[in-house]
């Protein structure tokens, strides 16, 4: 039972990540491969606050969102001026830099040893310790993330984002500030991703830099593409499929060492298959390979 709850919690965390990335990749058409970096910023800010200053969970969550948003602006403002591929490379650079800092600032982040013993959340005196309590917390935060994202994409601002994805020149000619809209959505995406980091850090109670690498970013992108670009429900489906599918490998009796490698192959194969035959993913409206 705990095992199933654990899987559901992970699906919740990855739903937050993929829904927030879908705002960028699916709706606005800006491919960021730095999403794991913002996930990491959230996790490390919350963990360090809790460990060093013993501040309460909700304050840590709030500060993580703000910090990630500020990083989002710092990365987005210069790099969103670049076009398509160059933007991807700029986010790649940020991803690498973030990992290096987390890995090398040993005194502060613990370096490769990570940060053990992160306190579990305590919300107004209510301790969250069991799996079921964490699942409820994840569902609430994932729900809020989904609600905010959904409201944005259904709004006139969401229409503007989709228009930017389809034809920036038209949007410029209609008197809109394209870069400002892109920066706004990038900051929102980064802030929301940090929520997942905060939950992850307090749930596992241990973080190290390897959880926030470029592979993690690519995994989140796979969820978005396979679930469906520009469809938020698709991101939930994608997270559920990509988290649950490798778990099934355990039940066909593969030893763990092989299952881990097969997982990577499975993700890669799925991504290729979807790009070739179903670029809009399970539920998406936007064809990613266009």
């Amino acid at each position: 039972m705990e095992y199933i709850l654990h899987i559901l919690i992970l699906i919740g965390i990855y739903t937050i990540l993929s829904v927030s990335l879908n705002l960028l990749v699916g709706y606005t058409g800006i491919l960021s491969i730095a999403h794991a970096a913002f996930y990491g910023v959230g996790a490390y800010v919350a963990a360090l606050m809790a460990l060093k200053l013993q501040t309460p969970f909700l304050l840590n969550l709030f500060l993580a969102i703000i910090a990630s948003g500020i990083f989002g602006a710092l990365v987005g403002i210069p790099s969103l001026r670049l076009r398509d591929d160059y933007f991807v490379i700029a986010t790649f650079a940020f991803q690498i830099i973030t990992f290096s800092i987390l890995n090398n600032l040993v005194d502060f982040t613990g370096g490769p040893l990570g940060l053990p013993g992160i306190p579990q959340p305590n919300i107004f005196g209510f301790e969250i310790t069991t799996h079921i309590e964490f699942l409820i917390l994840v569902l609430i935060l994932a729900g809020i993330t989904f609600w905010i994202s959904n409201r944005i994409v259904k709004s006139p601002f969401g229409r503007l984002l989709k228009a930017i994805r389809e034809d920036e020149v038209f949007v410029r000619a209609s008197g809109r500030n394209v870069s400002s809209a892109k920066i706004k959505v990038f900051v929102i995406g980064a802030s929301l991703a940090s929520i997942a980091g905060v939950i992850y850090a307090t749930y596992i109670t241990y973080i190290d830099p390897t959880s926030f690498t470029i592979m993690e970013s690519i995994f989140i992108i796979s969820i978005v593409i396979i679930g469906g670009s520009a469809n938020l429900k698709g991101s939930i489906v994608g997270a559920a499929v990509l988290i649950a599918l490798p778990e099934l490998l355990r039940f066909i009796g593969l030893p763990n060492s092989i299952a881990a490698n097969i997982r990577q192959i499975l993700y890669g194969a799925l991504l290729v298959i979807f790009m070739l035959w179903r670029p809009q993913g399970f539920l998406g409206e936007y064809k990613f390979n266009k």
Binding site: F157, R176, K184, I188
Partner: peptide
């Protein structure tokens, strides 16, 4: 057409 109207306060987050 809606994208071309000048009243943009409804695009403010």
């Amino acid at each position: 057409i809606l994208l071309c109207f000048n009243h943009q306060q409804n695009e403010q987050i």
